[in-house]
Amino acid sequence: MTVSITSYLLVALILFCVGLYGALTKRNAVVVLLSIELMLNAVNINLVAFSKYGLYPSVSGQIFTLFSMTVAAAEVALGLAILIAFYRNKATVNVDEMDEMKR
């Protein structure tokens, strides 16, 4: 029993599907942001796995992971800032009540 690239891809696939389900069904906006982080992490696992087990193993996959981590951190910071501004105005964090631009 050795660990092949398929094992890593399957773990990443399960994480991605769980994150997708959470992002589509949860009501609290903080939980939706968390689920998006889970999906980004699944992609990071894929990149790192290919940087070792891919056809041309190189360190570039790990560098892409670092870049995507940076973008994810910026996204979380901005998302929470928007969430706090929204909560101050509307006193709710539920995504199904964020329909100001639809009415």
Partner: peptide, 16 residues
């Protein structure tokens, strides 16, 4: 940061 976000909004929030 997420814990901060929860504490600054609804700190005992449930998500059904």
């Amino acid at each position: 940061l997420m814990l901060f976000g929860i504490m600054l909004t609804k700190h005992d929030a449930y998500d059904e």
